[in-house]
Simulated scan of single mutants.
Amino acid sequence: MKSFKSARKTNSTAVDDDERALFRDAVKGARTIDNDKIQPLPAKQRLQQKKHRQKADSVGLNSRAATDFFSDQFQGYIEDGPVRYVAEQESHYLLKQLRRGDYSPEMLLDLHGMTLAAAKQELAAMLRACEKQLIECCSIMHGHGSGRLKQQLPHWLIQYPGIRAFHQAPKEWGGDAAIVLLIKRRD
């Protein structure tokens, strides 16, 4: 009787014509890869990309900005009816003022046609820009569409620590397809 090592060795090296035909049939139509190596960027382009990343980080537009504040799994309590929220330390009178249109938005963000991931990035960038430019009131147009963005947007906003209050926008600022929000000013 042959030992296990020698039997294994002969089985692994011996390929009969049926196995070769089966293999060739399986890979029929496959083509070879021309180049699977990524060429390094020239030094000048690497330097430009580094400067661009540093500038985006200083403005707060890096790719981690949205994930630092917004979780898709978090579901805050939103009452039935118009979308509204007021932070714990704020007056509920802010909701009435937002509903009546006492505050006019200084910045508008239109999220029509964006995916949830892209909308999250844009929202984070807008909120940071509002804080840097000392903008207190802004409006976010989410549109009607499938309703996924309209449903998720309030849950993202509740998570952001700089939100004082938000309410469904008055008709002149988009009605039920938009949200008007107040942001804390950092003086």
Results as ranks from 00 to 15, higher is better:
Ser12Met: 12
Ile33Thr: 12
Gln49Asp: 11
Gln89His: 14
Phe74Glu: 08
Asp18Phe: 08
Arg24Lys: 12
Pro40Thr: 11
Glu90Cys: 15
Lys37Val: 11
Val86Glu: 13
Tyr85Ser: 08
Phe70His: 00
Arg24Thr: 07
Ala14Cys: 03
Ala65Glu: 01
Asp72Arg: 08
Ala66Tyr: 04
His92Asp: 15
Ser12Cys: 06
Val15Cys: 00
Val27Ala: 05
Ile33Asn: 09
Ala14Gln: 08
Glu79His: 03
Gln75Cys: 05
Leu41Arg: 08
Leu98Glu: 00
Gln49Asn: 14
Tyr93Leu: 12
Arg53Ile: 00
Tyr93Ala: 14
Pro40Gln: 10
Tyr85Glu: 12
Pro42Cys: 10
Val15Gln: 00
Leu98Ala: 05
Leu61Pro: 01
Thr10Ala: 06
Lys28Tyr: 07
Ala66Val: 04
Arg46Ile: 02
Ala26Leu: 12
Gln75Pro: 01
Lys37Ile: 12
Lys28Cys: 07
Lys2Gln: 00
Gln97Lys: 15
Asp18Trp: 06
Glu88Asp: 14
Thr10Asn: 03
Leu94Met: 09
Lys44Ala: 11
Lys55Phe: 03
Gln75Ala: 04
Gly76Thr: 02
Arg64Cys: 05
Leu95Asn: 13
Asp68Leu: 14
Ser3Gln: 06
Thr32Phe: 10
Ser91Asn: 14
Ile78Gly: 01
Glu90Asn: 10
Thr67Tyr: 06
Ala87Lys: 11
Ala21Val: 11
Leu95Thr: 07
Ala65Met: 01
Pro40Trp: 06
Gln45Asn: 05
Gly76Glu: 03
Ala30Asn: 07
Lys5Tyr: 06
Ala14Gly: 02
Lys51Trp: 02
Gln45Pro: 02
Arg46Asp: 01
Ala7Val: 09
Ala87Arg: 15
Leu94Glu: 15
Ala43Ile: 10
Val15Tyr: 00
Pro82Thr: 03
Thr13Pro: 00
Phe23Val: 14
Lys28Ser: 13
Arg31Ile: 03
Ser3His: 06
Lys96Ala: 05
Ser91Thr: 14
Val86Trp: 04
Met1Trp: 03
Leu98Gln: 01
Pro40Asn: 10
Ile33Ala: 14
Ser12His: 07
Asp80Leu: 07
Asp17Lys: 13
His92Gly: 14
Gln97Ile: 01
Lys5Leu: 14
Pro42Asn: 15
Gln89Phe: 02
Gln54Arg: 03
Met1Gln: 09
Ala21Gln: 15
Ser3Gly: 13
Gln97Glu: 14
Arg20Ser: 05
Ser6Asn: 07
Tyr77Met: 05
Asn62Ile: 02
Ile38Asn: 04
Phe74Arg: 07
Arg64Lys: 14
Asp25Gly: 05
Val27Phe: 08
Thr67Ile: 12
Asn35Asp: 15
Leu22Val: 06
Asp16Thr: 08
Leu98Cys: 07
Met1Gly: 15
Lys50Gly: 00
Lys44Arg: 13
Ala30Leu: 14
Asp36Thr: 03
Phe4Ser: 09
Leu95Arg: 05
Ser3Pro: 05
Leu95His: 03
Asn62Val: 04
Phe69Asn: 01
Pro82Ile: 02
Glu88Ala: 15
Lys2Glu: 00
Ser6Met: 09
Lys51Ser: 06
Thr13Asn: 08
Thr10Glu: 13
Phe74Asn: 04
Arg64Tyr: 07
Thr32Val: 09
Gln89Arg: 11
Gly81Trp: 08
Gly29Val: 04
Arg64Gln: 12
Asp80Asn: 09
